[in-house]
Design a protein around this nucleic acid. Structure first.
Lengths: 185, 185
DNA sequence: GTCTATACACTGATAGAC
DNA sequence: GTCTATCAGTGTATAGAC
């Protein structure tokens, strides 16, 4: 069972990822989600900002689950993380270089203009960082695991930008290899 | 001597960096730059897109010069790059976490919607990558230098996002240290 | 709960006087 | 070259019928 509310959030996640916050209009969301505009403000009285907060939260949580799941498949952190990044590269390519980094654009666009959205993005990045850090602590000291995790997340976010901009999965593939060296050494 | 044209470009660079492409209106650019709207379309008949292309190009070139200059100050690539990243961290903090990554947001926002802007951002990233790569080739093989450079640029772009989102210069500082280990090993 | 109609500000862009 | 006035379109948000 898919409610109107869920359809709206789902479509918002997709459009925000491709077009960003200011590039995505509410009209487009209601039109493409097939839900009526009346429902949008019924479910999200706070308007666009509230809707974006929920969408970003959902997208961030889904990615967190994927990180945890993928990293649990392989014992060696270096290999597990390399494969995870390689998967992202393939997914970015599959989307025609339109998707990848579901919260990246919003984090940048709204960091200075919406305290709410900034805080949500900040929390999500912290959650991701913790997930990588826990895995890395099986072979590294906690402090080093923490800084490695920060580098990994930054490199993935930046790598997605380079892939989308160059229309090539090559940047993330190179990054995956370099991170593999760093984590394994 | 500062012409209207230069004032407009200057202000556009600043606003695009803080607010992104869709978040920045032409009225705001005209108003804050002190130039008349009539001049905008006189100098940039292609409208917003043409103006953004010139602004991005100028910002990208300035960064390229800064990369080359900073990397030339120290012989050891590992130290030079670490100091460069540390400087970025300080500058992001100084701007109140509003600036940093003059082309990042535009690259993400327009990669799928404007072929012109995508191409310009792509070229700029390639120029930056080449600058790092040349420095790294003094101690690494060409292929390795290339992939390290890609990681460095991605890590900086992503690191700026993390700093702005968390309102802390800590992420870029951690990243600087990790990159130092990687390049120096 | 859902839908239509609409208010009202603002967008990018243009025309024409000066 | 510069400026004002203004266009058509779209943005978010709201009101009120059903």
């Amino acid at each position: 069972m898919t409610t109107s509310r869920e359809q709206i959030i789902e479509k918002t996640c997709e459009l925000l990822e491709i077009q960003g916050y200011h590039g995505t209009g509410l009209n487009q969301i209601v039109k493409e989600s097939g839900s009526p505009k009346g429902s949008l403000y019924y479910y999200f009285p706070g308007g666009k900002e509230e809707l974006a907060v929920e969408a970003i939260q959902q997208a961030g949580t889904m990615v967190l689950k994927r990180i945890r799941h993928n990293l649990s498949l392989v014992d060696d952190p270096a290999i597990a993380i390399r494969e995870f990044i390689m998967n992202i590269a393939i997914n970015v390519e599959r989307s025609g270089y339109a998707k990848g980094g579901p919260i990246t654009t919003i984090a940048l666009e709204t960091a200075s203009s919406s305290e709410q959205l900034r805080a949500v993005c900040d929390q999500i990045y912290q959650d991701w960082q913790k997930a990588f850090s826990e895995k890395l602590q099986t072979v590294h000291l906690p402090e080093r695991a923490a800084s490695m995790s920060t580098l990994i997340i930054a490199a993935i976010e930046g790598g997605v930008i380079l892939c989308r901009t160059s229309k090539s999965r090559n940047p993330l593939e190179r990054i995956a290899e370099e991170i593999y060296f760093l984590v394994g050494s």
